Simulated scan of single mutants.
Amino acid sequence: MSINPLPKVLFFDVFGTVVEWRSCVTRALMKAATRALLDSEKQLSVDVRIRAEAMTTEDWQAIAVEWRASYGHFTASFDPSSAFVSVDEHHYTYIQKLLQQRGLGGLFTDKERWDIALCWHRLEPWSDTVEGLRLLNRQFRTCTLSNGNVALLEDLRDYGSLPFTDVASAEHFGAYKPSPQVYHGAAKRFGLEPSECGMVAAHLYDLKAAKALGFMTIYVERPQEENLSAEQAAEAREEGFVDQWFGLGCGGLVEVAKRFGIPTQMSS
Rank of each mutant, 00 (worst) to 15 (best):
G72S: 13
E193Y: 08
D59L: 07
L44W: 09
G148F: 04
H172E: 02
L38N: 15
E221Q: 13
W120P: 00
A202V: 07
L145T: 02
W126I: 11
Y219P: 01
A117L: 10
E154A: 03
V254C: 14
T75Y: 10
L162D: 07
D158R: 14
S195C: 06
C250L: 04
E226G: 02
R138P: 00
S82Q: 15
W114Y: 07
D110E: 15
D13L: 07
L133K: 08
F78T: 01
V85K: 14
Q139C: 09
F215N: 05
F15S: 06
S81G: 10
F108V: 05
T93E: 11
E226K: 11
Y176Q: 04
D206N: 05
H203A: 05
L156W: 04
Q232K: 13
M266V: 14
R122K: 15
E41W: 01
L207D: 06
D110G: 00
Y71E: 11
P263S: 11
A230N: 12
N137Q: 12
F241A: 06
D243E: 09
C119T: 12
L44H: 07
S45M: 05
V167L: 15
M199H: 05
R222A: 04
N4D: 12
N147F: 03
S229M: 08
E58R: 12
M266L: 13
A76T: 09
E41A: 14
E131S: 13
S267D: 10
T264A: 14
L136A: 06
A233I: 01
R27H: 07
A69N: 12
L10R: 11
V87Q: 02
N4G: 00
D88R: 08
D79V: 10
L136Y: 04
L253S: 05
L99E: 02
R122C: 06
W67N: 03
W67Y: 15
Y205F: 14
G198W: 03
V256P: 04
F246G: 00
C250N: 04
A151I: 13
R35V: 01
R259M: 09
L192C: 08
F164A: 05
L228I: 03
P5V: 07
D13V: 02
T129L: 09
M216Y: 10
S268M: 12
C197G: 03
W21H: 02
L145Q: 03
K111N: 12
R68G: 02
L136T: 04
Y205R: 12
S70E: 15
A186Q: 12
G249S: 11
F173L: 09
D13Q: 05
Q224W: 10
A234L: 13
E89L: 03
L153V: 10
V254K: 15
F173Y: 15
Y94G: 00
G160M: 10
P7Y: 06
V46Y: 07
A209G: 06
G251Q: 09
V19Q: 08
T34I: 08
H184R: 14
T264K: 09
W114P: 00
R51K: 15
A212T: 00
A168D: 01
A64D: 00
A230D: 15
R35Q: 12
A32G: 06
L135D: 08
S81V: 10
A236Q: 07
L204I: 06
V167Y: 04
G106V: 11
A54P: 01
G132P: 05
G252H: 03
F260L: 13
L136R: 05
V48S: 05
R68K: 12
